[in-house]
């Protein structure tokens, strides 16, 4: 190796040694300004347009108003309720939240004179003591009957019956099944020709005064009672 070659190799080695640390070290850095992500919250549910308050009793029936979902329908041999009558847990006390629904049922029965006799039938799921369930289903059906009578339905048009857990609609092994099984049915036992109709107490008939309602229970319990 000549002296010249040794010189250049030495220079290259020195440069490589000088640059090597820059290639192998790590560098720490942080960005002080955050990356801003802007989100759009869901639009609030639009409030109904402000209108002059009017008592419900004075609202005329108007075909121009949009159709409301039917909660109570008269069918061939029963009044179908697309909702649930709610009771206090393990009691036969109707929850105030169900008064509107019961008012609709009253209106439908009043507007359907073809219903000669209506049987209010209570059912439970299979949870708990069968005798207790039987008694509770009877008491709850009777509570609904009382409400209807107190709100103008003739006593000879309604009766009540409890079936306890004996007529399930669904499997009692699941929550959903038990929920379906806890119910009150309105069975038309005697009838003339039926004209299907829909309950709509706000527009078709004045509501009864609140004081005619049964006293509201002070004890509150979570929904999902036995019935």
């Amino acid at each position: 190796m000549s002296c010249k070659q040794a010189f250049w190799i030495g220079i290259g080695t020195l440069l490589a040694a000088a640059l090597a640390p820059a290639c192998t070290h790590s560098l720490a850095f942080s960005d002080t300004s955050p990356i801003v992500i802007t989100g759009t919250p869901p639009a609030p549910i639009a409030a109904p347009p402000a209108a002059a308050p009017q008592p419900k009793l004075t609202l005329p029936a108007s075909p121009a108003l949009p159709a409301e979902p039917k909660r109570v329908e008269v069918q061939q041999n029963q009044i179908v309720i697309h909702d649930k009558i709610q009771f206090e847990l393990n009691k036969a006390t109707i929850k105030p939240a169900s008064y509107d629904l019961l008012d609709e049922i009253v209106t439908v029965v009043q507007n359907t004179p073809q219903i000669a006799h209506l049987s209010i039938e209570g059912h439970t799921d299979s949870t708990g003591n069968p005798a207790h369930n039987q008694r509770l289903s009877e008491q709850r059906a009777a509570a609904v009957q009382d409400y209807l009578v107190q709100h103008g339905i003739s006593t000879d048009r309604v009766s009540s019956k409890g079936w306890g857990p004996n007529r399930p609609l669904a499997d009692n092994a699941t929550d959903a099944g038990r929920e379906l099984n806890r119910r009150v049915e309105l069975v038309i036992l005697e009838q003339g020709p039926i004209v299907p109709t829909t309950g709509d107490p706000a527009r078709t008939e004045p509501r009864l005064a609140p004081e005619t309602r049964p006293a509201e229970g002070t004890e509150q319990a979570p929904s999902g009672g036995v019935l």
């Binding site: 560098l27 720490a28 850095f29 960005d31 955050p34 990356i35 801003v36 992500i37 802007t38 989100g39």
Partner: peptide
Amino acid sequence: PDDRSGDATFTWEFQLA
């Protein structure tokens, strides 16, 4: 890629529009 590793710290800020 870089021949040095980078130890970085970054911040994301989530804000409502």
